[in-house]
């Protein structure tokens, strides 16, 4: 029974509690919410915990899919699709490239460090959330709201409407182009990299 076992046991327990609590309070939708929230937070927790960076990266997939599920529950199926496509299909692949292109020997993890950080930040965020939760409590339940509609078409039109977001949309397009070019520029290998290094008398490099 090492710390790894303990962690995964606690994680499984937390998942059961989350789904159970959701079902008790709100039935079917509650169960779905509990599952998605568990997927999201659990993925993040494994990402932090796991020694292997490859596993960390893959556990992030859980987080992204969980967030997509939350979007579905919030009635934004377009966002869910975008989330899956871009995060899981694009960004995650990009991060895996990063994992592959850097040396694998930097995966040590200090339990004390993780624990201390978790306590500090968890306490801070919990405190802030507790203080502002009073303002949120008055909002109605999601199932009391009118049935959500997809509005994917409306979002598309809004992006191309000169009175709404077309400028921002175009700017985002430019941003992506510039980012792509800049990424290529920064990561490119210079000519000097291909030439053998001149040998110095001291042998240092």
């Amino acid at each position: 029974m090492n710390s790894n076992h303990l962690f995964y046991a606690a994680l499984g327990l937390a998942g059961a509690c989350a789904m159970g609590a959701g079902m008790v309070t709100a039935g079917g939708p509650g169960l779905a919410f509990g599952f998605c929230a568990y997927l999201t937070l659990g993925g993040a927790a494994i990402c932090i915990w796991e020694r292997s960076i490859v596993r960390s990266a893959f556990s992030l997939m859980g987080t992204f899919v969980g967030v997509a599920g939350l979007f579905v529950l919030l009635g934004s199926d377009f966002l869910a699709m975008a989330q899956i496509l871009i995060y899981v299909g694009g960004i995650l692949a990009l991060l895996l490239f990063g994992v592959m292109l850097t040396p694998p020997d930097n995966n040590e993890r200090s339990l004390a460090r993780v624990g201390a950080t978790t306590v500090m930040i968890g306490a801070g965020v919990a405190f802030v959330v507790a203080q502002i939760s009073g303002g949120v409590a008055g909002w109605v339940m999601a199932d009391q709201l009118p049935e959500p509609n997809s509005q994917a078409r409306a979002i598309g039109l809004a992006f191309l409407d000169p009175k709404q977001y077309v400028v921002a949309f175009e700017l985002a397009a430019y941003l992506l182009t510039v980012a792509l070019v800049a990424a290529v520029y920064i990561a490119r290998r210079r000519r000097a990299d291909f030439e053998p290094e001149p040998e110095t008398p001291g042998g240092q490099s």
Partner: peptide, 16 residues
């Protein structure tokens, strides 16, 4: 980043 977060929480706490 830790300092920044701590400062942020502190500010939030003061504000609240």
């Amino acid at each position: 980043v830790s300092f920044a977060v701590a400062g942020g929480i502190l500010l939030a706490a003061l504000h609240i």
